[in-house]
Amino acid sequence: MIEAVSFLPITLTVNGVEVTRVVEPRTLLADFVRDDLGLTGTKVSCRLQVCGACTVLVDDLPVSACTYLAVDADGADVRTVEGLSDGENLHPLQEAFVEKFALQCGFCTPGFLMMSKALATENPTADRAEIIEHLEGNICRCTGYRPIVEAVECALARMRKVPSE
């Protein structure tokens, strides 16, 4: 007989740091990283998986942390916007977003960055059409999107030149 549990311990790696916590099954990954771990870079907006603001990477795949149970990240490698740079220099995506004015209010930006990071891993030679297709599920209300497309194009090109990224 499988036992139903109301609280359970989870252990996961977040931005390279192993953490263990006891959570309710209903705890969402977005609330877990923001409230339990204090990683408030991840933002929450629509709570319907359509705006993309809360995107984080779980084992390198992008998920909507607003609709992803923290218990499902048990044992996983989670990366949030705070874990994108090496702590010294901006990640090429971050640098390109700043250079190209690809953000204004910045609330959608962590999500765009993590989605773009997933694209860089999966399809480092993505062209403009593929970038747009991949980021179509993220909403930005400030920029009108063109600067974001340009920033991702620019960052992917630079990352291809420096393969270590």
Binding site: G41, L90, Q94, V98, G106
Partner: peptide, 19 residues
């Protein structure tokens, strides 16, 4: 010029009210 608020916004360090 580079917008100064953008750097802390791309690292997740920028503080919004919700934070």
């Amino acid at each position: 010029v580079r917008r100064r608020d953008l750097v802390e916004k791309v690292t997740g360090a920028a503080e919004y009210c919700v934070d």
